[in-house]
Amino acid sequence: MSSKPKRGDVLDPKLAVEIRQATIGYSSKEPLLSSINIQFFKGEIVAIAGPSGIGKTTLLRTIAGLVPPLDGNFFIDGKENKPSRGELGYIPQRLGLVRHASVYHNVLLGALAGHTSPWFPYSSAAKKIALEAISSVGLDDKIRTPIRRLSGGQQRRVATARTLAQRPSIILADEFLGELDDETMNLVMEKVTSYVRESNATLIVVEHDISRAKEMADRILIMEDGRLNPFVNEPISIELDKEFEKEVNN
């Protein structure tokens, strides 16, 4: 591993993403998160929840290197610069699919990022991987359909397949289970989480549905008041809820 420790620190080799003293937002007058420290480990699934407009998407975009942090340091796999090609998979909230191209074309773009070099983006292995990823999200019958003729949930599955085909070591997923019925949601969730477990990858998922987040994640972070707090009091409140339910039922 080519980790370059900064400032004489020894970085934990199990670390996938480390954020140190970072301030995040679009203007330093109104930062969305200030002076936060977080660590995300390999093989871990972390859910981020919080009210709408609080800055969850902005945090993911900053980790992905699309928005510069206002202050502080970001380390991806021990390196303090943009993630290297194919290392990071991003399922944006607004999906970012090529609307006029087919499902296959879109998923292939992910596979190419993960399995070819930038100056010769072609390989037959990548094509096979793309087709596998499409069938893993249950879109076999839509391979040649342009994105603009798919439903919202189908488009979300295409974006997920694109990231799975990329086989990244870090996945940033922004509400990727939206608009899906329970069965499809379980299928997609299962595919993504089992990929993360098998390849010791890291999944950072924005999920405002707490019960879904609990089902998926090893830990949950709640974003509020410019900070990211661990979600702690939930077990108690669940039991309270259950007791309350019992009382009501009796």
């Binding site: 290297s84 194919g86 944006p92 090529v98 191209a101 773009l109 990022a113 983006p121 694109r162």
Partner: peptide, 24 residues
């Protein structure tokens, strides 16, 4: 959004131009 997805994945100029921009 497509450009951002492409940038996050680490696409090169060829993929971004011929895979995303021109079809889009």
């Amino acid at each position: 959004p497509p450009l951002e997805a492409s940038e996050a994945m680490g696409h090169g100029w060829l993929e971004r131009s011929f895979g995303m921009i021109i079809p889009e």
